[in-house]
Design a binder for these strands. Structure first.
Lengths: 115, 115
DNA sequence: TACTAGTAGTCAGCAACACTAAGTACCAAG
DNA sequence: CTTGGTACTTAGTGTTGCTGACTACTAGTA
């Protein structure tokens, strides 16, 4: 993964994972797999687990231990009310930032076309 | 500024500043002012200066010292060829990330409408 | 049996980045 | 001569994602 992407993921990866959990509860290994499916092919497993620990400690998610047929028990995370509120804030911040950056991106296209 | 925004800016602020410089050379104080105009009201001055030092050390910008009528001389930064290439990479990374996040955002709206 | 691979999670240490807070330097107005 | 605006610098902090190594359990295979 490019270094730029690594830096860009700081702050956004958390929102991405919370959004995934909002759609459906999941455990760490599963989340990593889903991220890979969605194109985030090089996100390190360790990164996801560390992130899950953080959001759990902040009380944004509830955790349930569920035995697995294969390997150690799974920790299934689900977004709770507090996490929902936090996710809303994330979308606000994201919209704000994305809007301004897209404006710059658009300006670039204008420039390239010589306007 | 919210903590989420602070984290989200990691990696993107650099691209934002490079994009500003691509449009027009500028010096630190000026860049900070422009960022504030564009809605990034709480970006710390120190942050911008530190960022400028970094991109200068990486050779992404050229620097010219220009005397100011008011205060110490200005360091005017302008994007060079290397910086232009780096900015292109930034837009690629941004587009990739924004596309995937918007997909999640959209999914959320669908959910809220009960579809 | 021993080895490999897939599943599932943990931990220690690192690099990069934005922020804070304090400081330097220069000028003009009061 | 002190205040306020301009312009930049520097030291230290916290958060984050990455790397690499590790534990633990199961199933298949040589």
């Amino acid at each position: 993964m490019g270094k730029q992407m690594t830096e860009m993921l700081k702050g956004t990866l958390e929102g991405i994972v919370l959004a995934l959990l909002a759609a459906q509860p999941a455990y760490g290994y599963e989340i990593t797999a889903r991220l890979r499916e969605q194109g985030f092919s090089d996100i390190a497993e360790g990164t996801v687990y560390a992130l899950l620990v953080r959001i759990e400690q902040r009380g944004l998610v509830d955790v349930a231990k569920v035995p697995s047929e294969k390997g150690p028990p799974r920790k299934v995370y689900s977004l709770n009310a507090s996490g929902g509120g936090y996710l809303d804030e994330f979308w606000n911040s994201w919209s704000f930032l994305a809007e301004r950056i897209e404006r710059l991106h658009h300006a670039k296209h204008m420039q390239e076309k010589g306007e």
